[in-house]
C-alpha cells in the first residue's frame, strides 16, 4: 500500500502538490498521472478470496439463510451486535452526524450560513431525523453549546477547503455499500459521504470521500487507513472496478488523506475483513486459520505471481456464474 497523497491543504506531497485552499476537489480529481487501467479479474479474485474465507468459518457466520443474524463487517471492523441507537445516541455520534450533514450541504449546495440550524434542518428529513433531533433536544445545555461551537469550526474549515461539486462530475452523497458474502452469512458495509465520477469503462474513474468522525480506533490502530481500505474494497466488490482514489477528510484538523486505490490497498482491505471474521469466530488456542492455509490458496495476491492465472480463472468463473 503506497499512500500517493497524504496531505493537508498546505502539503505538497504526492498528487496533492500545489493544493491550496478550496482545491481539495481538484486534488481528488487530479489528472497529473494517467488513470490506471482496471484489471477486470481483480474484483472477482478478491471476492473469491473473501467468499472462501467466509464459507470456511461457518461457526461464526450464521447467515441469513439459516435464520441467524449475519456477521457484519463495517469499515473493516466487526460489528459486535445491533446498535440500539434509537435509545442511546452519544454526543460523539451526534457530532459525526451533524458534521456529515454539513459536509454534504457544503459539497452540494454551498457552505451553510447557520451550520447548526441548517444541519438540523437537513437531518430532519432523513430516516434518523426524529431520533437525532430528539437526542439533541435532550442534551444538557453545555453539551449542546459545545456541539454548536464544534460544528461551527468544522463548517468554517469545510467552507474554506471545499466548494460545490460541478454537476458534470456526477456527485453522489451518502452512497451506501453493502456486499453480502457466503449467501448473506457475512455482510461487508461501508458508506461514502461523497462519490465522484462516472462508473468505470475500463479505467479507474471513481473517487470516494469519507468524512472522518474520529471514532472507532484503538491505540496503535489506524482507523482512517482501515476505513479507506474498506471503502475501496466495498466499491470494488460492488462495481467490479476499483476506484481511482479514496480519501478521508477530517474537518477538525482540516486534513485530507487521499490514497490511490491500487491492488495493495485492496488486499490490505481484504485482510482487515479476514481479521474481523477471525474475531467473530473467536478461535481457540492453536486453531489454524483456514484463510492463512497455503493449501487452500485463498488468494492469488498472497501467493507467487505464477499462481495468478489460477486466480484469474476463478475470478472469471465467479463473474460468469
Amino acid at each position: 500500500m503506497t499512500p500517493v497523497t497524504s496531505s493537508s491543504v498546505t502539503s505538497t506531497a504526492g498528487g496533492c502538490a500545489g493544493a491550496e485552499e478550496g482545491d481539495l476537489l481538484d486534488c481528488l480529481r487530479s489528472t497529473s498521472t494517467p488513470r490506471p487501467v482496471v484489471d477486470e479479474c481483480l474484483a472477482g479474485g478478491l471476492r473469491a478470496w473473501l467468499e472462501d474465507s467466509a464459507c470456511a468459518g461457518g461457526s461464526g457466520a450464521g447467515g441469513s439463510a439459516g435464520g441467524r443474524r449475519p456477521v457484519v463487517v463495517r469499515d473493516g471492523m466487526l460489528v459486535p451486535r445491533m446498535r440500539a441507537w434509537r435509545s442511546r445516541i452519544g454526543v460523539l455520534e451526534l457530532q459525526a452526524c451533524l458534521t456529515r450533514a454539513t459536509f454534504r450541504l457544503t459539497v452540494t449546495d454551498g457552505p451553510p450560513r447557520h451550520p447548526f440550524e441548517d444541519a438540523l434542518c437537513a437531518i430532519s428529513v432523513t430516516d434518523r431525523g426524529p431520533v437525532v433531533i430528539d437526542a439533541i433536544r435532550r442534551l444538557p445545555t453545555r453539551d449542546r453549546a459545545m456541539l454548536r461551537a464544534t460544528l461551527r469550526a468544522h463548517a468554517a474549515a469545510m467552507a474554506a477547503q471545499w466548494r460545490p461539486v460541478p454537476h458534470a462530475w456526477l456527485p453522489r452523497v451518502g452512497e451506501r455499500m453493502r456486499v453480502p458474502l457466503a449467501g448473506g452469512a457475512v455482510v461487508i458495509t461501508s458508506t461514502a459521504d461523497l462519490v465522484l465520477g462516472r462508473p468505470s469503462a475500463g479505467t479507474a474513474s471513481v473517487c470516494a470521500v469519507r468524512v472522518h468522525d474520529g471514532q472507532g480506533g484503538r491505540a496503535g490502530d489506524d482507523p482512517v487507513g482501515r476505513t479507506l481500505r474498506a471503502l475501496a474494497l466495498a466499491e470494488t466488490l460492488r462495481s467490479g472496478a476499483h476506484p481511482l482514489r479514496v480519501a478521508s477528510y477530517d474537518p477538525s484538523t482540516a486534513r485530507l488523506r487521499c490514497e490511490d486505490a491500487g491492488e495493495e490497498l485492496l488486499v490490505e482491505g481484504v485482510r482487515d475483513v479476514l481479521r474481523a471474521l477471525r474475531a467473530s469466530r473467536d478461535p481457540g488456542p492453536g486453531e489454524r486459520d483456514p484463510d492463512e492455509s497455503p493449501e487452500r490458496g485463498g488468494s492469488c495476491h498472497r501467493r507467487e505471481p505464477g499462481d495468478r492465472q489460477d486466480c484469474e480463472k476463478r475470478a472469471r468463473d465467479v463473474r460468469v456464474g
Partner: peptide
C-alpha cells in the same frame, strides 16, 4: 414546503439515486 437545507439534502439524495440509474 421544504426549507433550503432540507431541500438540498432531498435533492442530493435524489441525485445520487438518479445518477445510479442514469449510469
Amino acid at each position: 414546503s421544504l426549507a433550503p437545507p432540507a431541500r438540498a439534502v432531498v435533492a442530493a439524495e435524489a441525485t445520487a439515486w438518479a445518477t445510479r440509474l442514469w449510469t
